[in-house]
């Protein structure tokens, strides 16, 4: 179907930069997610792909074709918004069929057949005659998805489609979206501020911050090997120690963190100032290396585990323990292999 490429895409409004040079490639049939805090430029990037915004610099290409100046209605994209944006004066079926006024249904289907097929796809068969305001939030969002898919677009763009829904509904709808996307093998760009959602649903993820892409990769790589401190802290809980490399050995290094010394492996070559990232799950009372006496501040009961916030050597510490700690102080350690080290810029 379609490859999507962004090359050096920059967008400025009245001198303030919303995007500063985005380079991305989304492969055919891929589920690709843009994730980041609000204002990071993820929605602007999506709107540039859809043609609602034109880039100040750089270009967007579909299958190698430059999209400069092509209006949205000629791009063959399906867009789903957070607000659903259903047409309130049209029935569900009319909403789903709206795009078929401009493009013929695929495979020689009639409009009615296509609308029925799409409503079945999103589990809303028989709802075609209803008005949008008779539907629940989750149903509306599925109508919006069916409407976007009806003309068989080359590219599906989803702008925070789940953010207005409650947590449980969000998860089931997320699975449904993923199932439909794989079945149709449609190239999809998904925008969300929820990193857990991004990791759960995507083939690949781009983490954005301040109008730039910080890291692109598979969810596991983003989680295990964050490229920057921002990614390390944005994606999942993390313990982050800023330090200076004191001694390099064969497969280990000693890092000075505020006067204390930590042993870690796999230090980037040449780096002097580094950031050591250790996931909460890697900090355990039973590990004998890198022992850190932690002052406990608060505990949150999460069911299977307890998340403990505390402090060591002036640094905030997050632990994941099997039970609530009895004492105000406890000592945990981590294996040098479990630390991920990035160069501090």
């Amino acid at each position: 179907m379609t490859d999507l490429e962004l090359e050096g895409v920059a967008k400025r409004y009245d001198g303030t930069a919303a995007l500063e040079g985005i380079d991305l490639t989304v492969r055919d049939g891929e589920f690709f997610t843009l994730v980041g805090p609000s204002g990071c430029g993820k929605t602007t990037t999506l709107r540039t792909v859809a043609g609602f915004e034109s880039p100040t610099e750089g270009s967007v290409r579909f299958d190698g074709r430059a999209m400069d100046g092509v209006p949205p209605e000629e791009r063959d994209v399906g867009v789903v918004f957070q607000s659903y944006a259903l047409f309130p004066h049209m029935s569900v079926a009319e909403n789903v069929g709206y795009g078929l006024r401009f493009r013929d249904p695929p495979d020689g289907q009639t409009v009615d057949e296509r609308v029925r097929e799409l409503l079945e796809l999103v589990d809303l068969e028989g709802m075609g005659e209803r008005d949008p305001d008779q539907l629940s939030g989750g149903q509306r969002q599925r109508v919006a998805l069916a409407r976007a898919l009806a003309p068989a677009p080359d590219l599906l763009l989803l702008d925070e489609p789940m953010s207005a829904l409650d947590a449980q509904l969000r998860e089931s709808l997320r699975r449904q979206v993923k199932r439909i996307q794989s079945a149709l093998a449609i190239t999809t760009v998904y925008v969300t501020h929820d990193q857990a959602e991004a990791l759960a649903i995507s083939d690949r993820v781009a983490v954005m911050n301040g109008g730039r892409v910080e890291q692109v990769g598979r969810p596991q790589a983003i989680y295990r090997e964050p490229a920057t401190r921002f990614v390390a802290e944005f994606v999942g809980d993390n313990n982050v120690f800023e330090g200076t490399v004191r001694a390099r050995e064969e497969d280990q290094a000693r890092i000075d963190v505020g006067g204390e010394t930590l042993a870690v492996s796999a230090v980037p070559p040449g780096a002097d100032r580094v950031t050591v990232c250790v996931r909460p799950g890697a900090l355990s009372r039973n590990v004998g290396t890198n022992r850190l006496p932690v002052t406990v501040e608060t505990s949150e009961f999460l069911g299977e585990t307890v998340r403990v916030h505390g402090r060591w050597n002036g640094v905030e510490i997050v632990l994941q323990l099997p039970g609530v700690p009895e004492a105000d102080e406890l000592t945990v350690g981590f294996d040098p292999d479990d630390a991920h080290v990035v160069a501090t810029d």
Binding site: A50, G51, F52, P71, P72, E73, E74, R75, V77, G78, V79, F81, Q82, S83, A85, L86, F87, Y98, G99, R101, F102, R103, A144, R147, A148, A150, P151, L157
Partner: peptide, 14 residues
């Protein structure tokens, strides 16, 4: 909702 016009346009409407 401006997204309504944008939805229509993405679906092929001028």
């Amino acid at each position: 909702d401006p997204a309504m016009v944008e939805s229509a346009r993405a679906l092929g409407a001028s």
